[in-house]
């Protein structure tokens, strides 16, 4: 539903009264939105230290040992956390051909199906992410030991990145569960025809829009 909540390009003054990053469906989504606002500054940090590395290497002939690995870590973190962020804002791209053709009742079925599938995906991924993180944070003998990069600087970024991936997947699982709950327990929409395909892109979740929970300020 918030696909168009992305700051409308070209018209910053029109979109700036609404923060594009506030989650839209549940309180958890809004919390994720707030967290994303903070995490987004990692990208700026990554840019700044990249420029620092260029200056040090080209200008002063003394390349750093830590910038490349840190930049990859920062960007990987922002990529991983971008998953829950996009889920909170319903920014993940979907194909809407069938959705636009059918009536509200069938849309409701599709919503239920998609919410279940999203939840199953996130849950299975979280399990796999947990196994991956456990291996990266324990020695073969089962002691706590973080996997490191093996470079001269040797930071524990591999273990941390895997931890961030697990965190992102776990948050997505909770988000998906909450969405599922909302879709199932919202009043079902009355049987109706297609709601005008012209407005097809305006809302992606026609059915849940009927519930009070979704009437968040835009």
């Amino acid at each position: 539903m918030a696909e168009h909540d992305v700051a409308s390009p070209g018209l910053p003054e029109a979109s700036d009264d609404h923060d594009p990053n506030l989650g839209t469906r549940t309180p958890l989504d809004r919390l994720v939105g707030k967290g994303t606002r903070a995490a987004a500054w990692l990208v700026l940090l990554a840019m700044a230290i990249s420029v620092f590395e260029v200056v040090m290497r080209y200008g002063l002939d003394s390349p750093t040992s830590w910038v490349h690995e840190t930049v990859i870590f920062l960007v990987a973190t922002s990529f991983a956390l971008g998953g829950p962020a996009a889920l909170a804002n319903n920014r993940h791209i979907r194909v809407r051909v069938l959705y636009d053709l059918v009536g509200t009742r069938f849309r409701y079925v599709l919503d239920c199906f998609n919410d279940v599938m999203t939840f199953v995906f996130c849950l299975a991924m979280s399990y796999a992410g947990w196994v991956m993180f456990w291996r990266a944070s324990h020695s073969p003998l089962g002691e706590w030991q973080l996997e490191r990069s093996g470079t001269s600087w040797n930071p524990p970024f591999p273990a941390l990145t895997k931890g961030v991936i697990l965190f992102a997947l776990a948050v997505m699982t909770l988000q998906a569960l909450w969405h599922l709950y909302q879709t199932f327990f919202s009043p079902r929409p009355p049987e109706g025809g297609s709601e005008g395909s012209g407005a097809s892109d305006a809302t992606s979740d026609a059915a849940p829009d009927a519930t009070a929970d979704h009437k968040e300020p835009r």
Partner: peptide, 19 residues
Amino acid sequence: APEGMVYNIFQKAGAAPVN
């Protein structure tokens, strides 16, 4: 110089290794 000990050895030899 990628992972492993090659980075430190080039550094010891006076080079400016880049990862």
